[in-house]
Design a protein around this nucleic acid. Structure first.
Lengths: 238, 238
DNA sequence: CATTTAAACTAGTATAGACAAGTTGTAAAG
DNA sequence: CTTTACAACTTGTCTATACTAGTTTAAATG
């Protein structure tokens, strides 16, 4: 833990997860927490702000910070999370089959992206199965300008793990759209879909810390296996 | 504007939207902004943090705050937003037909919600159309314990507007799930769907500022009209 | 007994200052 | 000319302090 408020955030989050601070009760007050952790109140407030945006607590002025119910975090698909991370956290054993790795240009029209030039990329197509049932077809277009080469072994493991831990890339933010579409016959076959069945397509553009565009992704989900869970706070900035 | 950093946030957001700070350029440094607005640096940093989470800027340590491209905000369905707000912001003229207002218990099994007791609610069913094309079927269950009565006129206008501006309720956060399901024949008819067409169901539970559960909502979308846009930052708390 | 008031808590906002850490340009050194 | 070192910038973290604004409790008042 590099910074204090991150450490405090994790400590409080853990204590909430393990019901040391039970749902519906109040956390110690900010002043008390400041004493507990031997830090200033502002530092505590930064940790609490993080808990707030992640749905761990609700702050009520004049009263305190209430612990919220976390059962909704059973299947978190919100935020930017890779398939591998997701699976590990859910204790499911799954399989990833690499169908294709080759050089392609990004099909910009699919992503509603305006650009004069073609964007050279490594195209990685992978089929994700759980107990041999196809769940998701992932199509990644990783820009050559950022990552020149991707091996089969890396694709079979985890792209994100490779990018972040081996290459030291810092993935920062993404834009996502979710739509429902008719699959091509090829996709329908791969996902073992019946006739007339639509697919859920999650398309995202991922950016690095320095705002360089880095990757386009198309995740094609079986409709019956798709579940997106979100925690949202109402925007109200005075 | 009650607080300073809110005012500064709005000012900066407007200037970004109107390209006074163009995409790809740096904002003035935090120290400069502090002087410009006659405030302290911490206050500026709170405003910038808000711009960051809303995808207006990217902060780069040692360099500054870069203005990001905002074309993705053309159709924001992320966060908690009511249908009316959404429409106004998109300059579409639409129609809302109230199909039903009556007292019902919340069908808890639909929402994966455990409870011993029945929850008495006002059930409001509304069909949203644009140019006479059905888009969404909204089913709201507003808990009687919070709002005893809802008039037809209110339902035809905007529930959220009524709750927040007339009743003074402060809506704070929600949990949402998105799934794809087979519609009932009744729903298929209302949304003018063909055979074998699935629907996208967005189910949410909405809470007030004091964490009281307030409303269950089921939004049933035509698959071809559904589009969910999201901006997500990668979680990485040290 | 009911009501009002005040004190003691809670979180929210704002400031000023210090230092760490990353980036960039420039001057000095080779 | 190239490299190194440094100074001057940037944002990140942390502290200490003061005040505002809600909530709750309990004492004082009627």
């Amino acid at each position: 833990m590099r910074n204090k408020f991150g450490a405090i955030y994790h400590d409080l989050a853990n204590k909430i997860i393990h019901h040391i601070y039970p749902v519906g009760t109040y956390l110690p007050s900010e002043t008390q927490l400041a004493e507990l952790y031997g830090t200033s109140r502002e530092t505590i407030r930064k940790a609490l702000a993080e808990l707030l945006t992640n749905g761990f607590i609700q702050k009520i002025r004049g009263k305190g910070s209430v612990v919220l119910n976390l059962q909704r975090f059973n299947f978190p698909v919100s935020g930017i999370t890779s398939y591998k991370e997701l699976n590990n956290s859910l204790h499911m054993h799954s399989k990833t089959e690499v169908l294709c790795i080759e050089d392609q240009h990004v099909p910009l029209e699919n992503f509603d992206y305006q650009s004069d030039q073609n964007l050279p990329a490594t195209f990685v197509e992978r089929l994700r199965t759980i107990d041999d049932n196809p769940i998701v077809l992932d199509r990644d277009y990783v820009l050559k300008s950022v990552v020149p080469n991707i091996s089969h072994a890396v694709a079979a493991d985890s792209l994100y793990n490779y990018f972040e831990n081996k290459l030291g890339l810092i993935i920062s933010y993404a834009t996502k759209t979710i739509t429902v579409e008719h699959p091509s016959k090829e996709v329908a076959r791969l996902l073992a879909l019946g006739d007339h069945q639509d697919v859920v397509v999650v398309r995202s553009q991922t950016y690095l810390e320095d705002t360089t565009l880095f990757e386009f992704t198309e995740s094609i989900h079986r409709p019956d296996k798709f579940n997106f869970v979100d925690f949202a706070r109402r925007q109200k900035i005075n």
